Lab assay of single mutants.
Amino acid sequence: DEVRLHVNGHTIEFRGIDEEIFKILEEAAKRGADEEELRRLAEKLLR
């Protein structure tokens, strides 16, 4: 299960996240989070 999030012209792939987590990451990206911040956030949410 892989999703792709487009951030500042880059595509970031995440594996094993559900739609709810994806929406949180998408919102963070809209607020200016970079790839590293998004990955840290995803790790926290998946715990």
Rank of each mutant, 00 (worst) to 15 (best):
D1A: 10
D1N: 11
D1Q: 11
D1R: 13
D1Y: 15
D1F: 15
E2I: 15
E2K: 12
E2Q: 07
E2D: 08
E2A: 10
E2Y: 13
V3D: 04
V3C: 11
V3H: 15
V3T: 07
V3R: 15
V3W: 15
V3I: 12
R4N: 05
R4Q: 09
L5V: 07
L5M: 06
L5W: 00
L5H: 01
L5I: 14
L5K: 01
H6R: 08
H6F: 03
H6P: 04
H6N: 12
H6Q: 13
V7R: 01
V7L: 07
V7T: 03
V7N: 02
V7S: 02
V7K: 01
V7E: 01
N8W: 01
N8K: 05
N8P: 03
N8Q: 05
N8L: 03
N8C: 06
G9R: 00
G9A: 02
G9D: 04
G9Q: 02
G9H: 02
G9F: 03
G9V: 02
G9L: 03
G9M: 03
G9P: 02
H10R: 09
H10W: 03
H10A: 07
H10G: 06
T11C: 07
T11Y: 15
T11A: 06
T11W: 15
T11P: 05
T11I: 14
I12N: 01
I12S: 01
I12L: 06
I12E: 03
I12H: 01
E13R: 10
E13G: 05
E13A: 11
E13P: 01
E13Q: 05
E13Y: 13
E13W: 08
F14V: 04
F14H: 01
F14Y: 04
F14C: 03
R15T: 13
R15Y: 15
R15K: 10
R15N: 10
R15D: 07
R15E: 06
R15A: 08
G16P: 03
G16L: 03
G16I: 04
G16T: 02
G16Y: 05
G16S: 03
G16A: 03
G16V: 03
I17V: 06
I17T: 05
I17M: 06
I17C: 05
I17N: 03
I17A: 04
I17P: 02
I17F: 04
D18H: 06
D18E: 06
D18L: 04
E19R: 11
E19D: 11
E19T: 11
E19W: 13
E19C: 10
E19L: 11
E19I: 12
E19S: 13
E19H: 13
E20K: 14
E20D: 09
E20W: 15
E20F: 14
E20V: 14
E20Y: 15
E20H: 14
E20Q: 13
I21D: 09
I21V: 09
I21L: 10
I21G: 12
I21Q: 15
I21N: 12
I21T: 12
I21H: 07
F22D: 01
F22L: 07
F22N: 01
K23C: 03
K23N: 06
K23V: 07
K23P: 02
K23S: 08
K23I: 07
K23D: 04
I24S: 05
I24A: 08
I24P: 00
I24H: 08
I24F: 08
L25K: 00
L25Y: 01
L25Q: 00
L25A: 00
L25G: 00
L25W: 01
L25F: 02
L25S: 00
L25H: 00
E26F: 15
E26W: 14
E26D: 06
E26H: 09
E26Q: 14
E26K: 14
E27T: 12
E27P: 00
E27S: 09
A28G: 03
A28C: 04
A28V: 08
A28M: 10
A29P: 00
A29V: 09
A29Y: 12
A29C: 05
A29R: 03
A29W: 14
A29S: 06
A29Q: 05
A29F: 12
K30D: 05
K30W: 15
K30M: 12
K30V: 07
K30L: 08
K30R: 12
R31L: 13
R31C: 08
R31K: 09
R31E: 10
R31H: 12
R31W: 15
R31N: 11
G32C: 04
G32A: 01
G32H: 02
G32W: 03
G32D: 02
G32M: 04
A33C: 07
A33H: 06
A33F: 12
A33Y: 12
A33M: 12
A33L: 10
A33K: 05
A33D: 05
D34P: 07
D34R: 08
D34T: 11
D34L: 09
D34H: 09
D34F: 08
D34K: 10
D34S: 13
D34M: 11
E35Y: 10
E35L: 10
E35H: 08
E35I: 13
E35S: 06
E35F: 13
E35C: 06
E35P: 08
E35A: 09
E35W: 10
E36T: 12
E36A: 13
E36H: 12
E36L: 09
E36I: 12
E36K: 13
E36V: 12
E36F: 15
E37I: 09
E37R: 07
E37Y: 14
E37W: 12
L38F: 04
L38C: 02
L38M: 03
L38E: 00
L38D: 00
R39C: 06
R39G: 04
R39I: 12
R39H: 06
R39S: 04
R39T: 05
R40L: 11
R40N: 10
R40K: 11
R40I: 10
R40V: 08
R40D: 08
R40M: 11
R40F: 12
L41T: 05
L41F: 06
L41E: 01
L41Y: 07
L41N: 00
L41H: 01
L41D: 00
A42G: 04
A42R: 01
A42K: 02
A42Y: 14
A42I: 07
A42T: 03
A42N: 02
E43L: 15
E43C: 15
E43R: 15
E43N: 13
E43H: 15
K44A: 07
K44I: 12
K44S: 11
K44D: 07
L45D: 00
L45Q: 02
L45F: 07
L45H: 04
L46Y: 06
L46P: 02
L46G: 04
L46W: 09
L46E: 03
L46S: 11
L46N: 05
R47H: 09
R47K: 10
R47Y: 12
R47Q: 10
R47A: 11
R47P: 04
R47S: 10
